[in-house]
């Protein structure tokens, strides 16, 4: 049995508490607060304490789905991206660029959020971008 504790940062909000994921044979099975973390100092909130639960959760979204009728169907990434691009382009053409906005997440990394605002500002050419942790 291979069991190790992997130090990481809680992905749930911008605070960035340190935590340890217990990984047994390649699967994340438990979360512990990192007592050496300068941010969390060994504390976590309910989201952090439950962080391991979604990693291998059977309901977790791992591939794109498209709604056809009442149910969702699995499609490839290429199909999904081209479908999204096509729909966005259609909206922009019909209603103008300002009809599109973006709402990002605190769970994303800094780099991801940079890219996201870049997409809105440079791609859709407006300033309609915001973030859930902007309190």
């Amino acid at each position: 049995m291979d069991c190790r504790f992997v130090r990481t940062t809680c992905p749930f909000c911008g605070t960035g508490c340190g935590m340890l994921l217990k990984v047994v044979d390649g699967r994340v099975v438990d979360t512990l607060p990192d007592r050496e973390s300068v941010v969390g100092r060994g504390h976590l909130c309910i989201k952090g304490w439950s962080a391991h639960e979604f990693v291998h959760h059977p309901d977790r979204l791992t591939h794109p789905l498209v709604k056809k009728g009442d149910s969702f169907e699995r499609i490839s990434w290429e199909e999904a991206i081209s479908l999204a691009a096509e729909k966005f382009r259609g909206i922009a053409e019909q209603y103008g660029n300002d009809a599109i906005g973006g709402f990002s997440s605190a769970k994303c990394t800094n780099e991801e959020n940079y890219l996201f605002q870049k997409l809105i500002r440079a791609g859709f050419q407006n300033n309609n971008v915001d973030h859930c942790a902007r309190l």
Partner: peptide, 11 residues
Amino acid sequence: RGMGGVTAPRI
């Protein structure tokens, strides 16, 4: 005591 002098539990 692992990388960067940080302490964590270990097997």
